[in-house]
Amino acid sequence: MRICFYPGCSYASTAGYKESTEAVCQKLGIELVVIPDWNCCGATVMFGENKLRATALAARHFALTQAMGFEEIVTGCNACYATLGKAARLLNEDAELFIKTKDVLQALGLTLDRIPKIRHLFEILTKAMPDAPSERYRSLSVGAYYGCQLTRPHQFLDKGGYPEILETFLERIGFAVTDHSARTQCCGASHAVIYKDECRNLSARIIREISDKGAQIITTICPLCQFNLDQAQTGDLTPRIPVTYFTQLAGLALGLSATSLGMNKLLVSAEKVISRP
């Protein structure tokens, strides 16, 4: 299977999201065709600056995808997923905005006639992963953390308030899951970078809740969620619990090594937990 892949700006500098995505996709026979010359989606910034600009930034990829002959864009970042999805929705609903966006792209030498479907890497891997390729991690309790933007606001993938797709996925591929109430609580996102004190408790309460309920490891679906939960574990504020990507757990289940999945890049090491599940 070949998929049109939008990596987004954080992808390469994450704690192994790139390594694990590539390793797992290779193992499953999925070819990631990266959109050549992709740009930043505008994240949570651009819609607050200029709506047409925000839409054009996202839609530049729609034109590039069209030129590649694909009907769908797949991304692994929840913020990119929400931003590209929002632009796609606006362009489908607002004919005037579509024409203005098309004109901007035309001036850049790009053609936009149709809006691709925006999909999350999680959807692709959910379909592609075999049932429990290994029983090795059957007793490893995982706290699933969805973050905000995967199931909100469009809720295409699952219920916004109490999603279960990640737990279903983890159990199916051979992990134990821990039920908890922090699955869609906000980690502070980009505010956590400059409002450290104000946002400290947001990550801390998520980590404490998941750890208190007995999970040994947390798994996330978004670069920024992983980063915030991982880096918040300093001092005495929280217990220390490794925060991984779902692709890393999928890779472990497929028998790939922790190093090949970039798990040496985590701030809180997962080594002990995964060697003695």
Binding site: A79, A82, Q149, G160, T184, C186, A189, H191
Partner: peptide, 10 residues
């Protein structure tokens, strides 16, 4: 201070 978590909206 809006973090774009969309909790209010849903």
């Amino acid at each position: 201070f809006c973090v774009s978590c969309y909790a209010c909206m849903v």
